[in-house]
Design a protein around this nucleic acid. Structure first.
Length: 591
RNA sequence: GGUUCGGUAGCUCAGCUGGAUAGAGCAUCAGCCUUCUAAGCUGAGGGUCAUUGGUUCGAAUCCAAUCCGAAUCACCA
């Protein structure tokens, strides 16, 4: 049980017995004591002043003395400043925490809870390569899955590949028109980039044709609808849906090129899925639910045959769920896929890692599921994250202003190599070891950079300023770990039971933070927010570094101290390593 | 226009279930490597927490209005 929880319970008991009234945890607040005051944790007394009609001084004194008397193993001293009761936790508490947990690899992890969760993330389109925004999505999804696992959930990672539709046909048409049979092999190009180039080519040609039609006197709207290349693309989509063999063959060929490219990227960034759905296999799902909804009068049919749901009572609009020609829209298949996920895996929760541009869509999806009375409706959760933007605004693949995922990852790895070589600390590494190290550090910097920000918030990436390797970064934490490991290679844990009874301020500070790890893991899961963890790991590493420079571990004042500090180092290394693993980042043993 | 989200140091971000003098990192400046890895440590400067009003013993945090920015409201994906 966390120290805060113990203080809460102790305070509730003590208040109730001292003042002869029933109290609960909600009657007071516990904060960390500010560094400028003496103490570890602070009970804010103002709320009790009203309840007890006594001065903060009186309450603080009575409560402080009673806590000390009833819980001597927890509290060693107290002081009152204004309305704040500052409590000192006993050294023996901190030392016992260290001795019990320092070598426990599972410290901070929670027992299995029997709940099954699916996390859907990544969800790429097969008409263009991944960009920085996809990386944020991937890292978020992966990290949330790992955090949930650490909290005892059975987690399934899934991905829906948008492999069909008008946008896919655009690349296909452009390839037919301009490629002259070129392939990724003949051009020595990564498959996803190769196909992406034709998507760009489509748009270039389309713009030209629209401009030409406008010059001939057509209105903009008509020109956009009647550009020959657009008509060809629409025809191709119809042919695809009709299963025309040559179109299907081309579609398969080009998608496979893309998959080969994606595989390389996923392998590099260390991402994978337990289950991959393909839109081409799911886009017809959900149609039967439409009929069910019509029967239940949740949906209604307009005169032209299209099917709608009226959400105006919920403050939203009317939403189409089936086109007049009977074909499904995105909402239709999303309802269908949501059901399939639930039917297949009996999941307790379905988390969708999708950008905040689809907040409305996801809100409607959940609402429709609820109105249909589907059993899993309430367990649909949209983990909405903000877009990664450039200083100039949103990234647009059509305008070539995207930061390509492969490029930025390669750049990060190259920067890691540059730093490593400049420092010259691992000259004895083999080529393979060096390659692995550069990747560990470069990706560590990249992932940490994208995960340290609250997912809900949009973030700005400036390509002019390279991502840092110093300060609040992945490499900073990796470095802290590597230094600890370096010590532990020379100085293994001592086998003695001698325990010092005093703690220096920095020793206690590190322990104070280590104690919070299980709580942080739980908070990160509750909020589905890896940045909580990232911030925590940085604080721990920073505090340990201060301790490290101030106090020698190998040459401690005596054996008791040495033993204690080695345990402190081991526990810090374990927590840093386990924690950063949940961000999808690896630790180097040396760097 | 409706709905939703955001505005904290030069830059990127914490803090937001109300609590003590608003914190980090980067950048700038000044120090620290004969001692466990200096990708580190110590210190300095840097703030109208968008604005105004309200609630409260107490507001960056809650409420209202205003200003600014973004997303979304397609028989697009």
């Amino acid at each position: 049980m966390s120290i805060v929880k113990q203080i809460q319970e102790a305070t509730v008991k003590t208040l109730s017995s001292t003042f002869n009234e029933a109290f609960s945890e909600k009657d007071f607040q516990i904060n960390q004591t500010k560094p400028e005051f003496e103490g570890d944790y602070t009970i804010v007394l103002f709320s009790l002043v009203k309840l007890l009609k006594k001065s903060p001084e009186e309450i603080g004194n009575e409560l402080g003395n009673a806590l000390l008397k009833d819980f001597p193993h927890l509290f060693s001293a107290f002081n009152i400043i204004k309305g704040f009761l500052n409590l000192n936790i006993t050294n023996s508490f901190w030392i016992a925490l260290l001795q019990k947990n320092h070598n426990d690899i599972c410290y901070g992890k929670h027992a299995m809870n029997g709940k099954k969760v699916m996390v859907e993330y990544s969800s790429p389109n097969t008409n263009k390569p991944l960009h920085l925004g996809h990386l944020r999505n991937n890292f978020l999804g992966w990290s949330v899955a790992e955090i949930l696992k650490a909290n005892g959930y059975d987690v399934l990672k899934s991905c829906i590949v948008n492999d069909r539709g008008i946008h896919i046909c655009k690349s296909m048409i452009a390839w037919q028109l301009f490629a002259n049979g070129a392939t990724p092999l003949t051009t020595q190009k990564k498959g996803d980039h190769f196909v992406g180039d034709y998507y760009v080519l489509f748009n270039d040609e389309y713009k030209k044709q629209v401009a030409a039609l406008k010059a001939d006197g057509m209105t903009e709207g008509d020109a956009e609808k009647n550009a020959p290349i657009m008509l060809q693309t629409q025809q191709m989509l119809h042919d695809w849906e009709a299963g025309k063999p040559e179109v299907i063959e081309l579609w398969k060929k080009m998608n496979n090129w893309v998959y080969e490219g994606f595989d390389v990227t996923y392998k590099t960034i260390g991402s994978n899925f337990d289950k991959t759905y393909y839109e081409s296999e799911t886009y017809l799902l959900g149609k039967d639910i439409i009929q069910e909804g019509l029967d239940k009068k949740v949906f209604y049919r307009k005169d032209d045959g299209s099917v709608w749901i009226d959400l105006t009572a919920e403050g939203l609009d009317e939403k189409l769920v089936l086109r007049k020609d009977g074909t499904s829209v995105y909402m239709t298949q999303d309802i269908g896929l949501a059901k399939q996920k639930y039917d297949q895996y009996k999941i307790d929760q379905s988390i969708y890692v999708i950008g905040d541009e689809q907040n409305y869509h996801m809100k409607v999806l959940k609402l429709i599921a609820q109105k249909l009375g589907l059993p899993y409706a309430d367990d649909i959760y949209h983990l909405s994250y903000g877009m990664v933007e450039l200083p100039t605004g949103k990234m647009k693949s059509r305008e070539g202003t995207v930061v390509d995922a492969d490029d930025i990852v390669a750049e990060m790895i190259a920067t890691a190599q540059h730093h490593t070589e400049a420092l010259g600390k691992v000259k004895d590494f083999t080529t393979d070891e060096l390659t692995a190290l550069y990747k560990t550090i470069g990706l560590g910097a990249m992932k940490f950079y994208l995960l340290r920000v609250d997912p809900k918030k949009k973030m700005i990436f400036n390509p002019e300023e390279s991502i840092d390797f110093h300060g609040f970064t992945g490499p900073f934490i990796q470095y802290t770990y590597a230094r600890i490991k370096s010590i532990l290679r020379k100085e293994p844990l001592l086998k003695n039971d001698a325990t010092p009874n005093n703690l220096l301020p920095l020793e206690k500070e590190v322990l104070f933070i280590l104690e919070q790890f299980p709580t942080i893991i739980a908070d990160a899961a509750k909020e589905l927010n890896p940045s909580v963890l990232a911030n925590y790991l940085f604080l721990l590493a920073k505090t340990f570094n201060s301790f490290y420079t101030e106090h020698s571990i190998a040459n401690a004042e005596n054996m008791e101290k040495k033993s204690l500090r080695l345990q402190l180092a081991v526990m810090t290394a374990n927590v840093l390593s386990n924690g950063i693993q949940m961000l999808g980042i690896n630790m180097p043993e040396r760097m």
